[in-house]
Amino acid sequence: MAEKKKKTVKVIKIDADKCNGCRACEAVCSAFHATPKYSSTNPARSRIRVVCEPLKNIYLPVYAGEYTPAECSGRDKYVIDGKQYSECDFCRASCPSRDLFKEPDSGLPLKCDMCEDDPDLEEPLCVQVCLSDALVYEEREEEVEEQESPEELEIGLEELAKKYGKQKILDAVSRIYGNREN
């Protein structure tokens, strides 16, 4: 099933040392994803968030990732360059433990889509507005061994085979469809 495939990997390189904490990325993200586009601004709807703790000199842009139905047990602390971060500061999940990366009205999860648009944008907007270069967009070609992901039907059949045995399934299929034209 595995085969080599060329794939464009889209990456945003985050240089937190360069972040000036202006949150232009949050503003523009929420505007881009408004319907109609740019019709409203609301950083609470943004799919990027800058963790700002000026009096600790902590500035950390974080992108919204996968939704998680349950909070994790991780509550570790990280100390980097003498500054203490919580594990949550780095986490991209839309998670029940916090109000981050959720639509403020509905609570539905938000996820960064790299400003998917038609036609494609040159760079995601957060990168475009970050004149400090804390956010830099990178694209690279990668050859990946891609595992074809099984389709729903296959998953179902495999489960049935596990329960009834392969032969019974084959028999059933030929009995039902064997004599028909389509």
């Binding site: 040392d17 202006c22 000199n57």
Partner: peptide, 29 residues
């Protein structure tokens, strides 16, 4: 001056985070 910082939605870095060993408040802007 530890870092240059900005106001909301502005790329100009007119502010700074200032740290001083003798300050009771650790840092200020």
């Amino acid at each position: 001056v530890e870092r240059l910082i900005s106001c909301y939605n502005c790329p100009m870095k007119c502010g700074g985070i200032v740290t001083h060993p003798e300050l009771p408040t650790r840092k200020y802007m």
